[in-house]
Design a protein around this nucleic acid. Structure first.
Lengths: 185, 185
DNA sequence: GACTATACGGAACGATCGCCCCGCTTAGCC
DNA sequence: GGCTAAGCGGGGCGATCGTTCCGTATAGTC
């Protein structure tokens, strides 16, 4: 165990690779060749493999960071005075982020990764709090489960990713938000 | 021009390839190796290329058929007495179909194909009729455009494709349907 | 049944890409 | 400054896959 600390250059390179990968995956999805990520990081492919055993592992590392970011966001909103607004705020931020990060839907899908699945579970918990509170406040229909919600979010992210027009996005968001409200009649 | 008619075996093989491709794309998306499609069709890869200049062309042919199927469906519902029900029916059928056809979202996306884009335009027209009538009947909120609707449909198809549980699908459908209704207040 | 254009099958080519190896460089330490 | 282990780079291997080529088979025609 007792992991020896990384050499300074190694740590720097690891970070560069992560940053380059985050950007590359965000812009072009999982399909970017690994060599391109390496080049963007100013590093050889071998170096990437020194830090991440596999391309998928690299993707997972990036996904993990992405998901955890939103876990933190959800937690931060968990105690807001207005549960409905807190819920909406989370959705809005997620939608906004998705416009810049092509890989967000895939990250949420987990792709069968160990650590990411755990983070998604955390996200479920954190989102569950937001959801339950919003439901209790009458801002969201009651039969929706956290799983439903995450599925819907993935759908929204997918739409946003393939449709850059802000107006269209706004409509999609509005439909989702209103669809989540308790039915009128 | 004056295309000479295909030889009998050629026409049979062409059809087999199309059928095999439709099934393969439906189940596994665009990523199925072409050789597998050929094998499933009981044909060599060369034969596939005799009928379709490129793998993408084959995919487009399949997509075209898929989209046209729904164009026909939309048109058939255009004159129904209850515009709201007609609209709902179209949505429901589309959602149902998506469960069995992984490639439907991509087909709708058009993927930059000549003929498919045209079919999607037709779908827009046909859907536009359904939409306008549903809006006039007060069954769908007015600010939604056909483009919004198609984007939302793509999102729904994506969700359905990645989530096999029927209950979850039903919830997603319900949220979408209710989100499309005119807001209560 | 023979002839020919059409079509078929599948081996092989080339490009792409994930991943590994190994000789060279360099950080960390005395 | 010298020593050593950690780290680096990039050439290259192997697998996958789209596509092509060409010798063989067969439908269509007389």
């Amino acid at each position: 165990m007792a992991e020896r600390p990384l050499r300074a250059d190694a740590r720097r390179n690891r970070e560069r690779v992560l940053a380059a990968a985050a950007e590359a995956f965000a812009e072009r999805g999982y399909d970017v060749p690994l060599d391109e990520i390496a080049t963007a990081a100013g590093v050889g492919p071998g170096t990437v493999y020194r830090h991440f055993p596999t391309k998928e592992a690299l993707f997972e590392a990036v996904s993990l960071a992405r998901v955890q970011e939103h876990v933190a966001d959800a937690r931060a909103r968990a105690t807001a005075v207005d549960p409905g607004a807190a819920f909406d705020g989370f959705l809005a931020r997620l939608a906004d982020e998705a416009g810049r990060k092509r890989d967000l839907p895939d990250a949420l899908a987990g792709a069968g990764a160990e650590g990411v699945a755990e983070a998604v579970a955390e996200l479920q918990d954190a989102l569950g709090v937001l959801l339950t509170r919003a439901q209790a406040a009458g801002a969201v229909r009651r039969e929706i489960t956290v799983k439903d919600l995450i599925a819907l979010l993935k759908g929204m992210l997918y739409v946003v990713r393939t449709a850059p027009e802000p107006e269209l996005r706004a409509h999609v968001y509005a439909v989702l938000r209103d669809g989540l409200r308790p039915p009128a009649g």
